[in-house]
């Protein structure tokens, strides 16, 4: 564990707490893509199967349990508790275009041809693009509540922090994980447009609005 990874994980943790806080306080999941949230559940469940057979640390264990349970809780909030505030008609990204290619990539690129290792690869690839339905929705509506942009910024910062972590691990432990690094760079790159507007508008006190 190094500081970059710790900051990344804390940022990830913060993003989920911000999202839950936004839904609870506004009593609405307006502006949040259910598809992206459902993809995150898929990501966490397929990656953290090792909870059952591999012990890393107490920290690692609790974080995994938290990510699986909180992402399921968010689906519950969106589909049950605040269902009327969820508008599927603007959440129109076709996720089969993400799931299919990620499954094929995982069958080609993995470290061992076992069910859990292929699912691990799949989860890494899927995570890198899971935000697309959310960004697509943002692009369509052209605006977002400020709290939603804080959620996205924290979520984007999470994988961005992992990049210096991998560089650090390359120097100190001499290991490189090409699957995680490539996907992580793609994942972070997808946020660049968003970050530009976030830094130039939201952090200057303006509303998040995309040019028409």
């Amino acid at each position: 564990m190094n500081l970059f990874r710790l900051f990344g994980d804390m940022s990830h943790l913060a993003s989920i707490l911000i999202l839950v806080h936004k839904i609870q306080t506004t009593r609405s999941c307006r502006g949040i893509s259910f598809k992206t949230q459902a993809l995150y559940v898929t990501v966490f469940v397929s990656r953290y199967l090792d909870l059952f057979y591999d012990w890393v640390s107490l920290y690692n264990f609790f974080m995994k349990v938290f990510f699986i349970s909180s992402s399921c809780y968010i689906l519950y909030l969106m589909k049950m508790k605040f269902r009327p505030t969820n508008d599927p008609s603007i959440d129109t990204f076709r996720i089969e275009y993400l799931l299919g290619p990620c499954a094929i990539l995982a069958l080609i690129f993995h470290y061992k041809f076992t069910v859990t290792e292929v699912l691990w690869s799949f989860s890494i690839f899927l995570e890198s693009v899971a935000i697309l339905p959310q960004l697509f929705m943002l692009q369509r509506t052209g605006e977002a509540e400020t709290i939603t942009t804080h959620y996205l910024a924290a979520l984007g910062a999470y994988r961005a922090f992992y990049i210096p972590n991998w560089i650090y691990r390359y120097w100190t432990e001499d290991i490189v994980d090409p699957i995680a690094v490539t996907s992580g760079i793609v994942q972070t790159a997808l946020y660049l447009d968003f970050f530009y507007v976030y830094f130039t508008k939201v952090l200057q006190g303006q509303k998040f609005e995309l040019p028409a």
Binding site: R5, D9, H12, D50, D54, V56, S57, N60, M63, K64, F67, Y111, W120, Y162, N165, W166, R169, Y170, D174, I175, V176, D177, P178, I179, A180
Partner: peptide, 10 residues
Amino acid sequence: TGSGSVHDEL
């Protein structure tokens, strides 16, 4: 350089 997976990460 060892190519290895980072299964200890989240």
